[in-house]
Nucleic acid binder design. Structure first.
Length: 467
RNA sequence: UCCAGCGUAGCUCAGUGGUAGAGCGGUCGGCUGUUAACCGAUUGGUCGUAGGUUCGAAUCCUACCGCUGGAGCCA
């Protein structure tokens, strides 16, 4: 800032954790609120390093005290002074100012008040909402959760794999795709029949944003044994719900020599590990969520971590639903998809804990899932959690060449379009399994935040790509 | 995309046919080691947009736009 503050800055998090007074310290941050006293002004300073603010005492002997008294919420300042034990209640330490530099002012139009705002309002000011207690906390936890995911897999011998974001496969059964093209829509090359000729597009074929890295991950699991992806995923579905976004992040582990049981074990272990990590490392943020977002959050997280998840086959789940006597809006029956209300009944009312449902009828699942010996079901698994529903979807993959080709034809796919994928079954094929964990859905579960748009920095949903 | 609900001050909301309100915020002043401070004053509006009904519409009707919740799709 100026040469009079040659100190290297200290984060507010570190300052508040100090075990002893510090005679000279420099902190930088944004003013959350200011209160005047007779001879000085209290400034609540936050730099995002932690939830808590540092109380700054700015005395009327400061040369720029008149400016300090006009500081608005939102302004940025650098403060040099002494960290001392606080005389007041509510904080252990406070900073007595020797010099304060107003870095960037703010005025009365700053939209964040020190009182609570609704999530809906803050969504409209997505560029400023990380300066609020709630959203600052959400995005600190988001970072922590991402770190925990890498740690979980790296500790277990998985290799981090970056699968392509631009993909040529358009038939993975995972929703609508966004097209990637450099063709000028007003001057597109045409085939004889008038259709656009994507063979003359940038990649000499039609290309899309990826909806899953699974197929590519299978190739690398067939070489490095255990891999995981963690990257952005795009779905062009016109979904308008609190748990769908068009751009989201997904974790997709893929393991060679692993069957459905091993797959379910890993998913359960991962979910529990992530809850533990956040429980241990983000206590202040969790306390805030418990207070303002979801009063039962901590009890639910502890409950989930403490006991094994329920596991039930699709057939058993259908039977439970039929016998429940519950009146459902949608019909229950073998061969029908489980509706949200059915999944919610299983996880929220019946088992009251996360539930893994496995072995679904082959008709309602994608082509790549391994056919069971009964010839009716495939080794699918969905992990359902209370409040959110499906958080993990996965399966053991079909590793038998002929069975896979047959399944492709049954799904009206042409096996010759998937030569490289089938090669994995031609050369050293092994039983292998994997799943997709929705990163944002996991974050919702851990924070209690009920809308996916509030756990993504700048969410993309239908009709909304501002910021 | 479908169903339902809601759009009133910067924010949260009240007002259901007869002169647009409150709290908070902001601004000014007072008081004060305060901490969602306190006390007083003050500022603030094309009632989402466009039509229609009516002597008269924030209020009733229609369409559109936006937001929220639910459904489908899935992570």
């Amino acid at each position: 800032m100026t040469d009079s503050v040659a100190l290297s800055p200290t984060s507010i998090k570190n300052a508040l954790q100090s075990s002893a007074p510090i005679s000279a310290i420099l902190v930088q941050g944004w003013v959350r609120t200011r209160r005047d006293s007779k001879d000085f002004s209290f400034i609540e300073l936050n730099d995002g390093s932690c939830l808590r603010n540092l109380q700054v005492i700015a005395g009327n002997t400061l040369s720029n005290y008149a400016m300090v008294q006009r500081l608005n919420t939102g302004a940025s300042v650098a403060v040099r002074g002494a960290l001392v034990e606080s005389q007041g209640k509510g904080q252990n330490w406070e900073l007595v100012t020797e010099e304060i530099t107003i870095v960037g002012g703010s005025d009365e139009s700053y939209p964040l008040q020190k009182k609570g705002h609704t999530a809906e309002f803050l969504r409209e000011i997505a560029h400023l909402r990380p300066r609020s207690n709630l959203f600052g906390s959400v995005f600190r936890v988001r970072s922590r959760l991402a770190f925990a995911i890498h740690r979980f897999f790296q500790d277990r011998g998985f290799f981090y794999l970056n699968t392509p974001i631009i993909t040529g496969s358009d038939c993975e059964g995972a929703g609508e795709l966004f097209r990637v093209t450099t063709i000028d829509p007003n001057n597109a090359p045409r085939k004889a029949n008038g259709e656009i000729d994507y063979g003359r597009d940038f990649f000499a074929r039609a290309t899309y944003l990826t909806v899953s890295g699974q197929l590519e991950a299978e190739a690398f699991a067939s070489a490095l044994s255990k891999v995981y992806t963690f990257g952005p995923t795009f779905r062009a579905e016109n979904s308008n719900t609190s748990r769908h976004a068009n751009e989201f992040w997904m974790i997709e582990p893929e393991m060679a020599f692993t069957d459905l049981g091993g797959n379910m074990d890993l998913a359960e272990e991962l979910v529990k590990y992530l809850i533990h990590q956040i429980r241990d490392n983000s206590p202040d943020e969790l306390a805030l969520f418990a207070k303002f977002v979801d009063g039962e959050l901590l009890a639910r997280l502890d409950f989930v971590v403490d006991r094994p998840f329920q596991r039930t086959s699709y057939a058993e789940a259908v039977e439970l639903l039929v016998k429940s006597g519950e009146k459902f809006e949608f019909p229950v029956g073998y061969g029908l998809n489980l509706q949200s209300e059915h999944e919610r009944w299983l996880t929220e009312k019946h088992f009251k804990c996360p539930v893994t449902v496995f072995n679904y009828p082959k008709e309602i699942k994608p082509f790549y899932m391994r056919l069971n010996d009964d010839d009716r079901t495939v080794t699918a698994m969905d992990l359902l959690v209370p409040g959110i529903g499906e958080i993990v979807g996965g399966s053991q993959r079909e590793e038998r060449l002929e069975v896979l080709e047959k399944s492709m034809r049954r799904h009206k796919m042409n096996p010759t379009d998937y030569k490289w994928y089938l090669d994995l079954r031609r050369y050293g094929s092994v039983p292998h399994s994997g799943f997709g964990l929705g990163f944002e859905r996991m974050l919702m579960f851990v924070t209690g935040i009920s809308n996916i748009r509030d756990v993504i920095p700048f969410a993309r949903t239908p009709g909304n790509a501002e910021f």
